[in-house]
């Protein structure tokens, strides 16, 4: 197949996704750090900006040839450059998803949904967390489920990703009343209640960037 299918994640779109994600976390860095101040160590915005900035620089300097390779390179860099827990967590998400995609030049919506599911499950395993623990999984897990469900209903990738983005936003917002069970925030017990989880907030940005990257050329 030489003509990209309209619902395929191309290499170009994958790079654009991560560049848009870098722009989003840079733009929102102060808000992410602010969210991380009452319940974390106030470094989430800076860590994400540094990590995704390194990803953007690397991908624009030399772009790997397939979506899977782009994600693996991005994941490797996040593990190296972030310095906080979000590095190995986001790094594992992208790296494992990239491994799942292998080296096919074109990725269908279903392939993308399956790869993201593998990545999200790997994040859960790495952190020993589950949905409802007030972590990034609270945004990622419903988003990936919404993506798959919408695609199975026959919706376009653009529409399905838009719904995934909405699910991520709603999942992140739903972390506010939860008491944290994982990470530094869990030491605070009930004082972690009433705060939006910074990892869920940045995960929602990542999903929004993916939807935007695909919408841009449709």
């Amino acid at each position: 197949m030489t003509q990209p299918s309209p619902s395929a994640l191309t290499n170009e779109r994958t790079v654009r996704w991560l560049v848009l994600a870098a722009e989003a976390v840079s733009r929102e860095a102060d808000r992410l750090t602010e969210l991380d101040s009452p319940i974390g160590d106030a470094d989430h915005g800076n860590n994400m900006r540094r990590g995704f900035g390194a990803v953007r620089d690397s991908l624009t300097a030399e772009t790997p040839e397939t979506p899977g390779a782009v994600l693996r390179q991005a994941g490797r860099l996040l593990v190296s450059k972030v310095g906080g827990a979000s590095g190995p967590l986001y790094g594992t998400l992208l790296r494992r998803a990239g491994k799942e995609l292998g080296d096919s030049p074109e990725v269908s919506g279903a392939d993308l949904a399956a790869a993201l599911r593998t990545g999200v499950d790997a994040v859960a395993q790495l952190g020993g967390a589950a949905t409802g623990d007030k972590t990034m999984l609270d945004a990622l897990d419903p988003a990936v489920t919404a993506l798959r469900t919408a695609l199975e209903r026959g919706e376009t990738l653009e529409a399905a990703l838009s719904q995934a983005g909405t699910a991520a936003d709603e999942g992140a917002a739903a972390t506010v009343p939860i008491r944290a069970r994982k990470g530094r925030a869990s030491y605070l017990g009930e004082r972690s209640e009433g705060h939006l989880d910074p990892g869920a907030a940045s995960s929602a940005l990542l999903l929004a960037a993916l939807a935007e990257a695909v919408a841009q050329d449709d």
Binding site: A85, S86, P88, G127
Partner: peptide
């Protein structure tokens, strides 16, 4: 993050 980084290096 030290634990998570070591775990992810070992896993990935």
């Amino acid at each position: 993050s030290a634990v998570l980084t070591v775990r992810s290096l070992l896993a990935e």
